[in-house]
Write a protein that binds this DNA or RNA. Structure first.
Length: 1057
RNA sequence: GGGCCUAUAGCUCAGCUUGGUUAGAGCGCUUCCCUGAUAAGGAAGAGGUCGGUGGUUCAAGUCCACCUAGGCCCA
């Protein structure tokens, strides 16, 4: 509550805070004051900084990994906004595709496409649309809770009619360039989903499985060959016995050597020479070595006679065959392998496919008819065994592609599909990648660069229902008409269909006259890969070109995108590919690639294991700021990281609460002193050295955090901030407490400014707590302050204020203080007991200013501090070590010899010589005389006797432990002060309460201490009266116990008398 | 089989770009201290063959090679 009307005082900031509750209040504040909207509106006209929101698929509950990506997608826009850029942020939802279809299938209890067709495509797609809308709410709630500012009102939906038509437009551009084609190829195919998958979808679904690994005898039937080698068989290896049913040929490498060998069992077999010993072992007899080319067209008897395959079953030649594993003779089933198909086609072999689109063998196939392809393996292996064809049967563990959504093993399957010929723009893609900044950089040439180098055409079409329909109409003669919009369809067809839902089945009902021949053309049945949808968002999100061309121009390409590493071949690829296909340039300049979030044991989070951290719960336990800070600053963003309650709780205690308590401290004492930031304070240059130091550090902080964020390095920025907060609380405030009790304007103004800079720098990271602080400390005190910290400008670092020399000096001060504390601890004399003097030896010490030395004295509670080297009494022990870093540069190979010479020299004489002459010459064996200066040495000076000493890294401090009577009494006085303070706290007095003190003691030393230090004690404990008298006990008086004394004290609040 | 990443204290991680002789922090543990903001703070201690082997170098946690294990991605 403000002290009076029109005042510019801080609000009271309680020491205790419930962070999650505070965050909810801040969320309400942002809503009430429309802060996000204001931050975008306020920057209109400023240079744009564009980041794209990769649309999450709304088909399930958001997880902690979604929070991770969203934290990074939030922190940089907030930062750029503060830096004076205009950063519009459009939310987006990925609506189409298999994930959604599968979720709906599951809800409806369906098991395949037939079920969907029976249910009706219109109704099914309606369920898909409804499912998307349902799940979007959960994402919105999580997004709001975590403080990710993104504009949901303008969100793009990939299922919107405008979006779909934008995608159509782009496909037409690609078609017009001749890069959208239909082709029959062997492609990965999910038999359960009944559709082919693209290579980047394939990448999502590898699973480790154990398959049979069988070596099969293919008896040779070529008479000439058999005449030379009676009873010879080809040994053929496969891990997919089910494809043996459609065996069409055996491929050999024309240039490889093949051996005809008799095994130890007396059997004549043909395999690659390179594999004879590993496969057949010892005891074989080699009959002949033939080139693969000599085997061409040698016929054999196929393993199964279940389907008709005419004019086949001989050896063909193919370069891709290797002799690294298997037998060097590769079974060919052209319907189920891309290489097989190409090789067999070149020999004019037929392509026979006995497997139906649902993955089962056709019912009329003997033995395996109706069986799911994978399930046929066991039956077939048994059949091979019974027929004497099985040479060897092992199990083989390998990773095999599975459907990324339903986990059905995929089948490589020949079928017609639509492709985008990305291979035609491969060089352009590589060029665009060169112009892209990847974080971390290794992705660029590594994972992503490899992917581009091995680029294959994009299998675009899906034989499914809920997706963007391919905008291609075909007439009976096969002429194609590709359209870019419903308006174009209306124009061609002469019927207004602009109000039609551009989804199946409605769009399928539209027919148009063929633009080539005029015959009736109908849409091809396929929909497209939903990854195309999301990759099209840079233009489709604004409905380009049909809706708003200006918006697109302003937001292309993006300055920044960010997702987890699994998007390398997903969104990162589709964005770059579509951008390059349609606009000849990639859609983004900088891309941050995050590592995955793991559980506390380092396992992937999955529903199966039950180790999923539910993000809203996590944020309600610890606060969104804590989760955000963890994601940004704890560990390396591109490294897989373990997240758990302990790690996030740490963030709260170490960073957020320390910051908060510093704020609370400042608010408390400023209010007690009726201080306002607008009150005059001495110029920084005229303030005490510690104020100048803190101010310099704060400006350096602003500069360095800025640099880090420019380089997308949140980890370094976080480290800078938490170090600064620690310095602030545990050095500046700790050292300056007394000045705050006294209401010193210089101290209050210094801390105010330091907190202002910290709060601003931290705002993008932890937007809640910084907003609370901004409201309580800055908005209330400055009528010109921005109404939200997120509407404020980034703090300008003044290079003139930054003082590297002072920072170094202060670091030395703190190291010396640490030595002093260590010496105190080893001596057993508590800091409360004043000591007479300390001696210091450290490089840089002699040039330390008096006020910095005073800091050390005060902190260590010693009367004077002096230079150890000045003490000529001879009780200083000097140890000298070689400084290898300096010597190594000068002497290279001879460094150890010089170091040895230094070690064996008399350190006292050495130092005496150097200190008087600047350098000395010493003799090193095999090197000769060398000149040594102090920089070549690490000098440690320690006193010999009667002192408490601590030394580290060439710096040392010694405490004079002699306690005089006067020091003893001063110690007692401090002891009394501490005891009274403790009692005040116990009694629940406020820090500003004045008290009365009555005391009595039989001990003359204590009595003397009390009288001697009477004024000091009274001042320290805020006593308005301080009398020797224990008889005056009052009802509210509190007894104070002072350890190790026979002192009796009573205190009472002055007002309580 | 290939590519990339990772391996440092009981746990979580810095440090490696630019090599320097006592390898750090936080958490946890033991002992002690301090407390007029703090769920804080400080000191000491236990705990490390810096995954292994070789190499380069006067000097390797750091650079190089190979290997091992784990992860991710691909085939």
């Amino acid at each position: 509550m403000p002290a009076h009307e029109g005042s510019h005082m801080y609000r009271a900031v309680p020491a205790q805070i419930d962070l999650p509750a505070m965050e909810h209040d801040v969320l309400d504040l942002w809503d009430a004051e429309q802060v996000f909207e204001a931050s975008v509106a306020q920057s209109a006209g400023k240079p744009p900084w564009v980041s794209y929101e990769g649309p999450p698929t709304a088909n399930g509950t958001p997880g902690t990994h979604h929070v991770e990506a969203r934290v990074f997608k939030d922190v940089f826009p907030r930062y750029r906004t503060m830096k004076g850029f205009h950063v519009p942020r459009q939310a987006g939802w990925d609506c189409h595709g298999l994930p959604v279809e599968l979720a709906v299938e599951k809800e409806l209890g369906f098991s395949g496409k037939q079920d969907i067709e029976r249910y009706g495509v219109a109704a099914f797609n309606e369920r898909c649309r409804e499912s998307v809308l349902r799940h979007v709410d959960e994402f919105t709630a999580m997004t709001r809770r975590m403080g990710y500012w993104v504009d949901f009102d303008r969100a793009y939906w990939t299922m919107d009619a405008e979006y779909v038509q934008s995608v159509w437009w782009s496909l037409k551009q690609i078609y017009d360039k001749g890069l959208l084609v239909q082709d029959h190829r062997v492609a990965p195919y999910c038999p359960r989903c009944g559709t082919g998958l693209s290579d980047h979808e394939l990448a999502q679904g590898y699973e480790t499985v154990i398959d049979p690994s069988v070596y099969v005898r293919f008896p040779i039937t070529d008479e000439a060959f058999l005449t030379r080698f009676p009873g010879a068989v080809f040994l053929v290896w496969t891990t997919t016995p089910w494809t043996l049913v459609s065996n069409t040929a055996v491929a050999a490498n024309p240039d490889a050597d093949y051996s005809v060998v008799v095994t130890s069992d007396g059997e004549t077999v043909v395999i690659a020479s390179a594999l004879v010993s590993s496969l057949l072992g010892d005891g074989t007899t080699e009959l002949a070595v033939l080139k693969g080319s000599e085997l061409e067209r040698i016929t054999y008897d196929r393993p199964f006679d279940l389907v008709e395959i005419p004019d086949a079953h001989y050896v063909i030649l193919a370069d891709y065959v290797t002799t690294d594993d298997g037998t060097g003779l590769v079974h060919q089933a052209p319907a189920f392998g891309a290489d097989d198909l190409a090789s067999c086609r070149s020999y004019g072999l037929p392509v026979i496919n006995p497997v139906l689109p649902d993955g089962t063998f056709a019912v009329d196939v003997p033995v395996v008819g109706g069986l799911f392809f994978k399930k046929a393996d066991a039956t077939l292996v048994e059949l091979l065994h019974d027929g004497g064809r099985l040479f060897k049967h092992l199990e083989y563990e390998h990773s095999y592609p599975h459907c990324w959504r339903c986990h059905t093993p995929l089948i490589y399957y020949a079928q017609p599909s639509w492709y985008i010929r990305t291979t035609a723009i491969k060089d352009q893609l590589i060029e665009q990648n060169e112009l892209t900044n990847w974080f971390p950089g290794t992705i660029k040439s590594g994972r992503f660069g490899d992917w581009l180098n091995n680029n294959v055409d994009w299998a675009l079409s899906r034989n499914r229902f809920w997706g963007t329909p391919l905008p291609i109409w075909r007439c009976p003669d096969g002429h194609l008409t590709v359209v870019e919009s419903l308006a174009e369809l209306s124009a061609i067809g002469g019927v207004d269909v602009t109000g039609t839902d551009p989804h199946r089945p409605y769009v399928d009902d539209i027919t148009i006259p063929c633009t080539t021949c005029g015959a009736t053309a109908a849409r091809v049945p396929e929909v497209i890969d939903c990854w195309y949808d999301s990759g099209a968002m840079p233009f489709a999100a604004v409905g380009y070109p049909h809706v708003d061309a200006g918006a697109f121009a302003a937001q292309y390409p993006a300055d920044f995108i960010c997702e987890a590493i699994d998007q390398t071949r997903g969104w990162f690829y589709t964005l770059m590919a579509i951008g390059t296909l349609v606009f000849d340039r990639s859609s983004y300049r900088n891309v941050l690639c995050l590592g995955h979030i793991l559980d506390e044991e380092g396992r992937k989070m999955s529903k199966h294991i039950g180790n999923v951290l539910e993000p809203i719960g996590l944020m309600n336990d610890h606060g969104a700021d804590a989760v955000r800070w963890f994601m940004l600053a704890s560990g390396s963003p591109w490294q897989a990281r373990r997240v758990g309650h302990a790690a996030i709780g740490d963030v709260v205690r170490k960073t957020l609460l320390t910051y908060w308590n510093t704020v609370s401290f400042q608010s408390m004492y400023a209010r007690l002193a009726n201080w306002e930031p607008s009150q005059p304070a001495p110029a920084v240059a005229d303030r005490p050295v510690i104020d100048r130091w803190l101010t310099a550090q704060a400006h350096e902080l602003a500069r360095e955090v800025d640099r880090s964020l420019e380089a997308f390095d949140t980890q370094r920025a976080g480290r800078l901030l938490s170090t600064f907060i620690d310095d602030l609380s545990n050095w500046y405030v700790r050292r300056s407490r007394r000045r705050f009790w006294d209401g010193d304007p210089a101290a209050l103004a210094t801390l105010h400014e330091a907190l202002r800079i910290t709060t601003l720098c931290m705002a993008p990271f932890t937007p809640f707590i910084t907003e609370r602080v901004w409201q309580d400390l800055f908005r209330t005190t400055d009528p010109d302050a921005a109404t939200s910290v997120h509407l404020a400008e980034w703090p300008q670092a003044d290079p003139g204020v930054i003082d590297a020399a002072l920072a170094e000096d202060m670091a030395l001060v703190r190291r010396i203080v640490e030595l002093g504390r260590a010496a105190r601890a080893t001596s057993g004399i508590r800091t409360r007991q004043p000591l007479g003097r300390a001696l210091v030896s450290a490089s840089g010490w002699t040039s330390l200013s008096d006020d910095l030395r005073a800091e050390i004295c005060e902190e260590l509670n010693v009367a004077v501090i002096e230079t150890l080297a000045d003490d000529t009494a001879g009780f200083v022990e000097i140890a000298v070590k070689a400084n290898f870093r300096a010597l190594g540069q000068r002497f290279g190979k001879q460094t150890p010899l010089v170091a040895e010479a230094i070690a064996s020299a008399d350190p006292v004489a050495l130092i005496a010589g150097i200190r008087s002459a600047g350098s000395v010459s010493i003799h090193a064996s095999d090197v000769g005389d060398v000149t040594i200066s102090e920089a070549d040495l690490v000098v440690t000076e320690t006193p010999r006797e009667g002192w408490a000493v601590a030394a580290e890294g060439g710096e040392s401090l010694a405490l004079d432990l002699h306690i005089t009577d006067s020091l003893h009494r001063a110690g007692i006085a401090r002891e009394i002060v501490r005891a009274v303070q403790e009692a005040r706290k116990q009694a629940g007095f406020d820090v500003s309460d004045r008290i009365s003190v009555w005391w009595d003691t039989p001990d003359p030393v204590v009595r003397l201490a009390l009288t001697e230090h009477h004024a000091l004690i009274a001042q320290e404990v805020l006593a308005t009266s301080f009398e020797e008298d224990t008889q005056r006990a009052s009802a509210s008086a509190v007894a104070v116990t002072v350890p190790d004394t026979s002192l009796g004290i009573l205190i009472a609040r002055s007002g309580d008398r």
